[in-house]
Measured scan of single mutants.
Amino acid sequence: KKYKVVEVKENKDGTVELVVENENGEKKKITLSKEELDKLKAGDTVELK
């Protein structure tokens, strides 16, 4: 499934919390490390299994 990044929030521990949404409007929260996030920004599309 493809999800669009709608919100990006940095946590104090250096991880980043993303809120992503698919075309049905379903939202998910995922947490990434700073390194994983470096290639993402709001409006990008991510694929989740």
Results as ranks from 00 to 15, higher is better:
K1E: 14
K1W: 01
K1N: 12
K2S: 05
K2F: 11
K2G: 04
K2M: 11
K2R: 09
Y3S: 06
Y3M: 12
Y3F: 09
Y3C: 12
K4G: 02
K4F: 10
K4S: 04
K4M: 11
K4T: 10
K4L: 14
K4I: 14
K4N: 06
V5K: 00
V5N: 01
V5T: 01
V5P: 02
V5S: 00
V5Y: 02
V5E: 01
V5F: 02
V6H: 03
V6Q: 03
E7A: 08
E7N: 04
E7F: 05
V8S: 04
V8N: 00
V8Y: 04
V8R: 03
V8K: 04
V8M: 13
V8Q: 04
K9S: 09
K9D: 02
K9W: 10
K9R: 12
K9T: 11
E10D: 13
E10F: 03
E10K: 04
E10Y: 06
E10H: 12
N11F: 08
N11T: 09
N11V: 04
N11M: 11
N11L: 10
N11P: 02
K12P: 13
K12S: 14
K12R: 10
K12A: 09
K12C: 13
K12L: 13
D13A: 01
D13W: 03
D13T: 02
D13V: 01
D13H: 03
G14Y: 01
G14S: 02
G14E: 01
T15E: 03
T15N: 06
T15S: 06
V16T: 05
V16Y: 13
V16M: 12
V16W: 14
V16A: 11
E17M: 10
E17K: 02
E17F: 07
E17N: 07
E17T: 09
E17L: 09
E17P: 00
L18E: 00
L18K: 00
L18R: 00
L18W: 02
L18I: 11
V20W: 03
V20S: 00
V20N: 00
V20T: 03
V20A: 02
E21P: 00
E21G: 01
E21K: 04
E21Y: 04
N22F: 05
N22D: 14
N22I: 06
N22S: 15
N22V: 08
N22Y: 04
N22G: 14
N22A: 14
E23K: 04
E23R: 03
E23M: 07
N24E: 13
N24T: 11
N24Q: 12
N24H: 13
G25A: 02
G25V: 00
G25D: 01
G25W: 01
G25Q: 03
E26H: 10
E26M: 08
E26T: 10
E26K: 05
E26L: 07
E26N: 05
K27G: 03
K27R: 14
K27F: 11
K27W: 08
K27S: 07
K27V: 11
K27N: 03
K27P: 04
K28M: 14
K28S: 13
K28A: 08
K29G: 06
K29T: 13
K29N: 12
K29Q: 11
K29I: 14
K29P: 02
I30F: 06
I30C: 07
I30N: 00
I30R: 01
I30G: 01
I30A: 02
I30E: 00
I30H: 03
T31S: 09
T31A: 04
T31D: 02
L32S: 04
L32V: 11
L32T: 09
L32Y: 06
L32C: 12
L32R: 07
L32Q: 02
L32G: 15
S33I: 09
S33T: 08
S33K: 14
S33R: 15
K34N: 08
K34H: 13
K34A: 12
K34Q: 10
K34G: 15
K34S: 14
E35Q: 11
E35S: 11
E36L: 09
E36C: 13
E36H: 14
E36G: 15
E36F: 11
E36R: 05
E36I: 10
L37G: 15
L37R: 12
L37W: 12
L37Y: 14
D38V: 10
D38C: 13
D38F: 02
D38M: 08
D38K: 07
K39A: 05
K39G: 15
K39S: 10
L40R: 05
L40C: 08
L40K: 05
K41M: 11
K41H: 06
K41G: 07
K41Y: 06
K41I: 10
A42G: 04
A42P: 15
A42T: 08
A42D: 08
A42E: 13
G43D: 10
G43I: 04
G43R: 02
G43H: 04
G43Y: 02
G43M: 04
G43V: 04
D44W: 00
D44F: 01
D44G: 10
T45S: 02
T45P: 01
V46G: 11
V46S: 03
E47F: 03
E47R: 06
E47Q: 06
E47K: 04
E47I: 06
E47T: 02
L48M: 07
L48S: 08
L48Y: 00
K49N: 15
K49T: 15
K49A: 15
